[in-house]
Design a protein around this nucleic acid. Structure first.
Lengths: 339, 339
DNA sequence: TTGTATGCGTTATCAA
DNA sequence: TTGATAACGCATACAA
C-alpha cells in the first residue's frame, strides 16, 4: 500500500482536498478500517475511548464520507429518487419536505425527479439514465411513474418503495366529495374532470367513487363533464350541464382550479352559489380561500397520505417504523362558501 | 466481498450486475484503457476498426459508465444541482425541463434541490450535505440560494453557474408593471408585497424599480403595503390604502395571488375594477385568467430568462453557446381586465 | 479490540 | 496505436 501522496504537507491546510478516512485515521491514531467501522455505527466491538477519538477526529476535520467511494464498493448509492408527477399540486414542496426529512432520517439523501408525462420517450430515457448513473438505494413514487419505468426498476434490481401497499386514496377522495355534497342537501351530483388530462387515472378513480356513492345512496347517476381552463369553455360546459340536472346540483371537481372555473362560470350565468349550484374541489390551494365565495375543498393530511412511503422507507432501510395511520384520516373536507 | 446474495438463484443472469468496462474490453478484444478512451470520444488516436468494435460491444452489453467509479477518480460527479426556490411559480416544471435538457446536452445529469426558505438552519444543512455527498460538477441557481450557501460553494470549490452574470430581472419586472399602469392612465401607483415573505429580495428590488420609475416620470411616490393571503387581512390593507391615494390608482403586485386577493377585496368594498382601482400581477398563473375580471400580469419568456444559465452551462462544460437574447425580451405584460 | 489486504469501475500516466 | 498499472476513497472478510 503506497497510500501516502508524494509531496504531502503535514496539514493539508483547508479546503481544497476534502478530508478522507485516512486523514481521520491518522489524526485519531487508528487504522482506516477502524474509522470505517466506527463511522458506520458498528461500535459494539471498540473501546469507548477509540470510538470517541475517531468521532472527534472526524468532526474536527469536517470529514464527510465520499459518496463515490461508498457507492463504488456498495454497488449502490445512498440516494433515494423521489419521482414527482407532472400534475402539480400547490403544496408539492411541503410534500417533498416531509419525505425528504424521512429519507434523511435513515441516513439517505433525497433526489427529486420530475416525471414529464408529455414527452413520452424522452421521459423514459431521462429516468433510465438517472437510475443507471445514480444507482439509487431506492425509488419513492409520488405518482409519476409509468408501468414501463416500474418494469425497468425491477429489471435493474432497484427497489421501488411501498410498491405493494399503495393505498387507494383516490376513491376515498371521490367518496368524500360525494358524501359532503349529499350531506349539504344536493341530490343531483356531477363529476368534473380537467379537460386536458385525458388519461389521468386519478380523475377516473375519483369519478367512479362518486358514481358508486350515488348508486349506494339511490341518487341519480352523476353526469361527467370535462372542464377546460379558460372562461368561455368553462361556461359552455356549465350551460350544457344545466338541462341535464334539472335544478339545484352539486359538482365534485377534479381540483380547485376546475371548481373555481365552474364557480366563476356560474356567477357569470347569474346562478347563485351555493343556492343553485355547489362546487367542491381538491387541493386546498390558497387561492381558493381568497376568492369569493371561498371554496369548499378536500385537503390532504400530508403526514398520513405519505405514511405508506415513510413506513416502507423505515422497513427497507432500518429506521423506526411509525404506527401506520388509517387511510380514512388522510383527507378532510374544508368547508367554504361554495357548498 | 459479499457480492453474491446468499441463496442466489442461477437465473439472476442478465441484469443484476451491470456490465463494466472490463466486460466491454473482453468482448471487443481490447484493454480497459482503450475502452475508456474510445467511450470518452478520444478516438483520434485509434484505428477505426478498434473504435467500432468497442462501440458495438458497449451497445451490445448495454454498458453504462459507473457514475461512482467516474466520480471517484475525477473528484467530482457528472451531476448538476438545480436549486429551485420555494416561491413556486406555476410553470416550474417547464423551467426545469428546459434547463434539464441543456444539462443533458453537455453530458451531465440534472438533480433538483428544493430550497426551503422557511426552515433556515435545516435548509442550509440539507444543501451542504447534498453538495458534499454528490460533489456535483456545478450548481445552477434558479433563485433559491442564500448568500451563506454561495459562500459554502466557493469554500468547497464547486462552480456556481452564471454567478457573475445573473441579469437583474427584478428591476425589469417592477419597471414593466409601473410602465403598464402609467400607460393605462393611472397616475397614482402602489406596490403590494406578500406579507409573509418579509425578507424576500425579489419584492424589494421590484418595489424599488417602481419607485424609481415614478420618480423619473414625476409621479407621486408609491406607497408600499404588505398583503396577507386571506380575505379579511387583504380588505384591511386595501381600506388603509384608499385614503392615502385619493381616488383612482393602480397597484403593482408581487405576484398573481396578491393581485387576486386585492381585486377580490376591491369588489367586496364596492370599488370598480379597473375603473377605480387596477391590479397587475406577476406570474401569469392559469387561475388569473379564469376568474373575473381576468388578471393583467407579467409573464416570463422562459427561454430568455433562463438563457444566462444555459449560456454559462455551455461555457463551463463545452457545449455550443447560443446567442444571448437581450434581457428586455425576458418578460411581457399580458393584458387582462384588471387594468 | 484492532489492523491488513483486497476489490469496487474509472481514468491518467507512461511504457511498449 | 495500444496496453499495463497505479491511483481515487471506502467497506469488509480475515488475520492478529
Amino acid at each position: 500500500m503506497s497510500r501516502q501522496p508524494v509531496g504531502d504537507e503535514p496539514v493539508a491546510s483547508a479546503r481544497l482536498r476534502p478530508a478522507t478516512s485516512a486523514d481521520v485515521a491518522r489524526l485519531a491514531g487508528v487504522s482506516r478500517a477502524t474509522v470505517s467501522h466506527v463511522l458506520n455505527d458498528q461500535v459494539a466491538r471498540f473501546s469507548a475511548d477509540t470510538v470517541e477519538r475517531v468521532r472527534s477526529a472526524a468532526a474536527e476535520l469536517g470529514y464527510v464520507r465520499s459518496a463515490a467511494g461508498r457507492a463504488l464498493v456498495m454497488g449502490r448509492s445512498d440516494f433515494v429518487v423521489l419521482v414527482v408527477p407532472y400534475t402539480t399540486f400547490t403544496n408539492l414542496q411541503d410534500v417533498i419536505e416531509v419525505i425528504s426529512a424521512q429519507i434523511e432520517e435513515v441516513g439517505l439523501s433525497p433526489v427529486i425527479h420530475f416525471s414529464v408525462s408529455r414527452a413520452e420517450s424522452a421521459k423514459s430515457r431521462r429516468f433510465q439514465h438517472l437510475i443507471e448513473t445514480l444507482r439509487p438505494a431506492g425509488v419513492a413514487d409520488l405518482g409519476g411513474l409509468s408501468p414501463q419505468e416500474v418494469d425497468f426498476l425491477a429489471e435493474v434490481g432497484c427497489p421501488l418503495l411501498a410498491e405493494d401497499e399503495q393505498p387507494d386514496y383516490n376513491p376515498a377522495i371521490g367518496r368524500l366529495q360525494a358524501e359532503h355534497l349529499h350531506s349539504r342537501g344536493y341530490e343531483r351530483i356531477c363529476y368534473a374532470f380537467l379537460s386536458d388530462a385525458r388519461d389521468d387515472p386519478y380523475g377516473q378513480q375519483r369519478a367512479r367513487a362518486v358514481t358508486e356513492y350515488c348508486a349506494r345512496e339511490s341518487l341519480p347517476e352523476p353526469p361527467y363533464v370535462r372542464v377546460p381552463l379558460e372562461r368561455e369553455g368553462a361556461r359552455e360546459v356549465l350551460k350544457e350541464l344545466l338541462p341535464r340536472t334539472g335544478g339545484r346540483f352539486g359538482v365534485a371537481c377534479y381540483n380547485d382550479l376546475v371548481a373555481i372555473a365552474l364557480a366563476e362560470s356560474a356567477a357569470a350565468l347569474g346562478l347563485d352559489v351555493p343556492g343553485d349550484v355547489a362546487f367542491i374541489g381538491v387541493e386546498h390551494a390558497p387561492v381558493g380561500q381568497i376568492i369569493s365565495p371561498s371554496l369548499t375543498t378536500v385537503a390532504a393530511n400530508m403526514s398520513v397520505s405519505l405514511s405508506h412511503i415513510v413506513h416502507s422507507l423505515a422497513v427497507e432501510f432500518g429506521g423506526t417504523p411509525l404506527p401506520r395511520p388509517s387511510p380514512d384520516q388522510a383527507f378532510r373536507v374544508v368547508q367554504g362558501e361554495s357548498t
